[in-house]
């Protein structure tokens, strides 16, 4: 478990360092995600070493978003003025995005 946590943090650091060195507008954690996938694929690290830790992180993913959600309370003033355009455009666009992505994969993808 501890070994897995160490690996995950190692790849997070690696992702952040890569973003910093390449000076690209991207998220270090997503780069870390791609790099750990490549490392597993190339057998540089073993699945059994990271899986116990990664499963635990993934299990509680929703919880880690809660503080960011609470942060929305500081947006009250902006939303008060522009609420109609913001709410309508983001809600309609989000539903449209969900539907288009979902329908294409459902229609053309293979069933499991």
């Amino acid at each position: 478990m501890l070994k897995g946590v160490l690996y995950i943090f190692l790849f997070l650091v690696l992702g952040e360092v890569l973003v910093f060195l390449c000076n690209v507008p991207f998220a270090g954690n997503i780069v870390g995600m791609v790099v750990i996938f490549i490392a597993l694929k190339l057998k540089l690290i073993k699945l059994n070493d990271v899986k116990p830790a990664s499963d635990q992180f993934i299990k509680y993913m929703v919880l880690f978003f809660v503080p960011y959600g609470v942060g929305l309370m500081t947006f009250y003033d902006i939303l008060k003025i522009h609420w109609l355009a913001i709410v309508v455009s983001t809600v309609v666009s989000t539903i449209l995005t969900l539907y288009i992505t979902g329908i294409i994969l459902q229609k053309f993808g293979k069933d499991e």
């Binding site: 270090g28 990664s54 992180f57 809660v66």
Partner: peptide
């Protein structure tokens, strides 16, 4: 708690 999101995204790679 918010910080733990970083390693969780890396864990998705697994």
């Amino acid at each position: 708690l918010g910080f733990l999101l970083g390693p969780t995204v890396v864990a998705l790679g697994v």
